[in-house]
């Protein structure tokens, strides 16, 4: 049962209902498309350890229900998230139009330094596309988001989305972000490598607020 990792990041998957959030998470963790499943009620949870730039990072991922009214319930989980996948469906303009709302929520309620990657999901349904790549990448640029088009069905760019987001957070730790800041959404793991920060700081980890 013992797991070795250097860091633990809290991640969120947010976006409108039916954009494929749970399928992205399932594809990422199980490496296959989740066919025929009930939609998410409330919040579901998954985790996986990935290797990014010589570090083992455990992602603890909170998959949220997309229906508008569940937001008043799911918003409570935003606190202390280090990263987020903001998902829309490239075949539905409505899900794209809702992005600003989701973004406001995430920036307001999660960690100040939250790293967000925009995912235009259902890339495999290119024939039914309602949102162009160019338009979405402009939106991403304006809002300082990373951006990928993904397909939970084929698996294209799914792993990449999670990895890129994690890599950016690691970069931030090396430069400006202090994992020991309250609500950073980052914890040190048991691997106890912690070369990124001075050893002195590592002692403070037990005092961290987040128990996830």
């Amino acid at each position: 049962m013992s797991e070795t990792y250097d860091f633990l990041f809290k991640f969120l998957v947010i976006g409108n209902a039916g954009t494929g959030k749970s399928c992205l998470l399932h594809q990422f963790i199980e490496k296959r498309f989740k066919e025929d499943s009930n939609h998410t009620i409330g919040v579901e949870f998954g985790s996986k350890i990935i290797s990014v730039v010589n570090k083992f990072v455990k992602l603890q991922i909170w998959d949220t229900a997309g229906q508008e009214r569940f937001r008043s319930v799911t918003r409570s989980y935003y606190r202390g998230a280090a990263g987020a996948l903001l998902v829309y469906d490239i075949t539905s303009r409505e899900t794209y139009n809702a992005l600003t709302n989701w973004l406001t929520d995430a920036r307001m309620l999660a960690s100040q330094n939250i790293v967000i990657i925009l995912c235009g999901n259902k890339k495999d349904l290119d024939a039914d596309r309602e949102v162009t790549f160019l338009e979405a990448s402009r939106f991403a640029q304006e809002n300082e988001l990373m951006f990928l088009e993904t397909s939970a069905l084929t698996g294209e760019n799914v792993e990449e989305a999670f990895v890129q987001c994690a890599r950016k957070i690691l970069n931030k730790i090396e430069s400006e972000l202090d994992p020991e800041r309250m609500g950073s959404g980052i914890q040190y793991g048991d691997a106890a490598l912690r070369q990124l920060r001075s050893p002195r700081r590592a002692q403070a980890q037990s005092a961290q607020e987040c128990g996830c």
């Binding site: 009620i41 409330g42 919040v43 319930v73 409570s76 989980y77 987040c210 128990g211």
Partner: peptide
Amino acid sequence: NVMWSLVVSR
């Protein structure tokens, strides 16, 4: 620090 909604909203 577990909110009830996390485990019982379903």
